[in-house]
C-alpha cells in the first residue's frame, strides 16, 4: 500500500478515505477502508458481488453516510450536500436513473441544465457515448446497453474533474465496451480522475493506473495491475495440442507443477516457462504450442478465494475519527 496520509503541501488528493466503515443490520458492508486517489489517476475498485464496492463508492460520492471514518474529495467532505463541490463530480450509479417519458436528448438536456452546463455539451456527450442515433428515442424504449450509455453520458455531460462509474461496462457489447474505453482514456488524457468498478479484469488491466481489490468490505490489496501480476505467485500456462505429448511424460518435465486437460489442450502449469518450453521442444517440437502468462484475473481469483469468508476472523483496524 502507498504511504497515503503523509502528503505534504501540493494539491489535496482527489479522494481520501480514512477508516470508513458501514454496517447494514449485522452485516459489515465496508470495514475500515483507507484509500487515497491522486488527481488524474484512473482507479479501479474490484471485488466479488456483495464485497461492498457500490456501498464504498456511494460513501465517497456523499450519497451514503459512513457509520465511522472520514471522506474528503479535493479536501472537502461530500456529506452533507455541498453544492459548490458537486459540479466537480460526475456520478453514474449501478441502477440508471432517467426522467420519465423523455427522449434521450431531453433527459440529457435536463441533466445538463441541473448543472448549468452549456447546451452544446449535450450533443457532444451523446456523440461520445454513441447515442446520436437514439437522441429522439424515449428513455423507456432504449435497450439495456443504450440505457447504460445514457447513464454514463449523464455523469459526463457537465465535464466533471472527478468521475465515479459503478460498473459502466456491465451491459455493453464488446464493441461498445472498447468505444467506452476510448472515451475514458480520453478523459484521463485530459487530466480527469476516474474511480470505477468492474467485473472485467481484462478491462481493469487495460485501463487502470491502480486497482484495489475489495473482499468482504476490506481492501485486500492496492497496487498497479502490473505490479500485482509481477508480484503474484500465480503460475503461467503452456498449452500443448492434445496428442503432442502424453500427460505422464508432460508431468515428468522439470518445472511442470500441474498437468490438466482443458478445452482441447494439455495445460502445463509452471513458474519457469522458458525451461519447460525448451524441454518440450526437445521431446516433441513446439508445433501449435501456446503460452499464457498469469493475468490480473489469476491474481484476483487467487486472492479472493483465499480471503473471502476469512476476513471476519482478522482483527478490524480501528480508525474511527469524527463523523
Amino acid at each position: 500500500m502507498s504511504s497515503a496520509s503523509a502528503t505534504t503541501g501540493g494539491p489535496p488528493p482527489a479522494v481520501r478515505v480514512e477508516g470508513v466503515s458501514k454496517r447494514y443490520g449485522d452485516r459489515l458492508a465496508v470495514d475500515g477502508v483507507r484509500l487515497e486517489i491522486r488527481p488524474g489517476e484512473f482507479f479501479g475498485l474490484l471485488g466479488p458481488n456483495g464485497a461492498g464496492k457500490s456501498t464504498l463508492i456511494e460513501i465517497m460520492e456523499g450519497l451514503r453516510r459512513a457509520d465511522s471514518g472520514t471522506v474528503a474529495l479535493f479536501g472537502r467532505p461530500p456529506w452533507p450536500r455541498d453544492t459548490s463541490l458537486l459540479p466537480r463530480i460526475g456520478v453514474q450509479t449501478q441502477s440508471s436513473a432517467f426522467f420519465v417519458r423523455q427522449t434521450a436528448h431531453e433527459h440529457l438536456r435536463t441533466v445538463a441544465a441541473l448543472y448549468g452546463a452549456p447546451r452544446g455539451a449535450v450533443d457532444r456527450t451523446l456523440e461520445a457515448v454513441g447515442l446520436t442515433g437514439q437522441r429522439k428515442v424515449r428513455v423507456e424504449a432504449l435497450s439495456g446497453g443504450q440505457r447504460q450509455r445514457l447513464a454514463i453520458a449523464s455523469a459526463l455531460v457537465h465535464g466533471p474533474e472527478l468521475i465515479f462509474l459503478d460498473e459502466p461496462t456491465a451491459a455493453l457489447d464488446p464493441q461498445a465496451r472498447r468505444d467506452l474505453w476510448e472515451v475514458l482514456r480520453g478523459l484521463k488524457a485530459e487530466g480527469r480522475t476516474i474511480v470505477y468498478t468492474t467485473h472485467h479484469l481484462d478491462e481493469a488491466e487495460a485501463l487502470c493506473d491502480r486497482i484495489a481489490i475489495l473482499v468482504d468490505g476490506r481492501i485486500a490489496v492496492t497496487d498497479s495491475p502490473h505490479n500485482l501480476v509481477t508480484a503474484s505467485r500465480a503460475p503461467s500456462r503452456v498449452l500443448l495440442p492434445l496428442g503432442l505429448l502424453d500427460a505422464e511424460r508432460a508431468a515428468a518435465v522439470e518445472g511442470v507443477e500441474r498437468v490438466d486437460v482443458q478445452g482441447g489442450s494439455l495445460v502445463l502449469e509452471t513458474h519457469t516457462v522458458g525451461q519447460v518450453l525448451s524441454a518440450v521442444d526437445r521431446i516433441s517440437g513446439l508445433d501449435g504450442v501456446q503460452t499464457r502468462t498469469a493475468s490480473l484475473e489469476d491474481v484476483y481469483l487467487d486472492l479472493t478465494s483465499r480471503l473471502s469468508g476469512t476476513a471476519a476472523a482478522a482483527p478490524a483496524p480501528a480508525e474511527t475519527t469524527e463523523p
Binding site: E61, L63, R81, S84, T93, A97, F98, V100, V111, L114
Partner: peptide
C-alpha cells in the same frame, strides 16, 4: 415517491440544483 425510487432524486441530489 417515483423520483426517489427511480433514483431521479439522487441524480438531482448529486447536481448543484437547489
Amino acid at each position: 415517491m417515483q423520483w426517489r425510487s427511480d433514483d431521479i432524486l439522487r441524480l438531482i441530489r448529486m447536481s448543484p440544483a437547489p
